[in-house]
Design a protein around this nucleic acid. Structure first.
Lengths: 230, 230
DNA sequence: TGTTACAATTGATCCATATCAACAATTTAC
DNA sequence: GTAAATTGTTGATATGGATCAATTGTAACA
């Protein structure tokens, strides 16, 4: 079924494989043009509208990428370790960051000079191909999320988020939630109060169990159905 | 202001410049692997989930690209002449179309063999770079639309569509609407009835004038404000 | 040319979820 | 270890738009 892809709402999963395509010499050159920066939980990694002279790579931690117009905010994706961030800045028209990114938890970020990155694109076709793969993967991802946030209602969206956290971030049905209700709300495009209510609902129905920050998925299959039903 | 980009909701605008990067020999090779197909208004150009062995290029006409899960549909973008369609299919993971496309009006479409397209990517770095530019441009576009459809309310969204039609499709403040209310509704992510009501509202307020299929924008500036206010 | 289908319009009703307000629980800071 | 601040929870209310239903164009069609 072609609709399979659509049911998934949310999170960047593809491991970025572009640097593996570089020769040793090229890798060395990239390393020379790389800085490593540590961000604390809650710190801004990049700011929408600011000049972008580096491509970012999440070495460890977890970050959200979001758009903001001053009043509202839209989380485009969540970035787990091993992924690039700020690829849109290599476009000739976009020398500034098209979005902001913020560390959900303490994170380590590699900053790679954009000029160096672009150089690799021009000299190494395999690298370029891999970057294209990443861009396409991002696009498919965002499209799915777009669909979900515009067509599913809050119960289904919350189910989505829970499944994503389990499947794509923690690789476990039992994890410590690093996100507040407000952050969960923002992530699923609903209000914090509604998140509480929906969370209560899945809890009451015995699909999850929570104690403190700990969250355990009890009925994965039913959550999946809720997610797919919208 | 970084927020400038966000206010725009909708439509693919970038002219695709990748083929200009090819050598004469390469262009010839692409031509040999290209078929030209004419679609009538309302015909399906590609179908979500179907095998994709060609990249498509809209030579003339107008098409919508949309996701569909059987119940709901989401228009991702509108494609005017001079743009590629189906680029997501060059990803190694996506040999099938990730979305459907339908001709809004009679359209001429070039079909380029995907293998040939990929070959160019691997042999011509400038071509690859330009494809990357296109992908990024698409991403930025979709992100903006994503934000608008999740955070603006219907009045603002309708204003967006009207402005997009004028600015990016017809290049005129006075044009014949080729879209039904239902199509406008789908495009702005609201119901057809609400489109009628909002259209009536802008009409009553003297911002547009309609007679039959003809639509004329009378107060561009005010529409812009409505669009930006949400 | 009437008939049948479809598109547009208008009004009435309903519903999901935001918003507001009050309070409890937990974390942070000094 | 207590005060202050933030986060979580719950209930009551408000509202933007969807949905439903009825009516009127409008275009295809035999």
């Amino acid at each position: 079924m072609g609709s399979k892809q659509l049911t998934s709402c949310t999170i960047s999963s593809r491991h970025c494989a572009c640097f593996e395509q570089l020769t040793n010499a090229e890798q060395k050159r990239v390393e020379e043009n790389t800085a490593i920066v540590k961000y604390k939980k809650g710190e801004l990694i990049c700011k929408q509208g600011a000049m972008a002279s580096q491509i970012l790579y999440i070495e460890s931690g977890l970050a959200k990428v979001f758009l903001d117009n001053g009043n509202d905010t839209l989380v485009l994706k969540v970035i787990p370790p091993g992924n690039l961030l700020g690829l849109t800045s290599i476009g000739s028209e976009n020398s500034t960051f098209q979005y902001s990114a913020l560390a959900y938890v303490d994170s380590v970020v590699k900053q790679i000079e954009i000029s160096c990155f672009k150089e690799m694109l021009h000299t190494n076709p395999k690298f370029a191909s891999e970057v294209i793969e990443i861009l396409i993967s991002n696009t498919v991802q965002i499209n799915g999320r777009f669909f979900c946030l515009t067509h599913k209602q809050s119960y289904g969206r919350l189910a989505d988020i829970l499944l994503c956290l389990a499947d794509r971030i923690f690789y476990s049905q039992d994890f410590l939630l690093p996100l507040s209700r407000k952050e969960l709300a923002e992530l699923s495009g609903i209000s914090a109060e509604t998140v509480v209510r929906m969370l209560k609902k899945v809890n009451d129905e015995g699909l999850i169990a929570t104690e403190g920050k700990n969250l355990r998925i009890l009925d994965y299959h039913k959550l999946k159905i809720i997610s797919e039903m919208g």
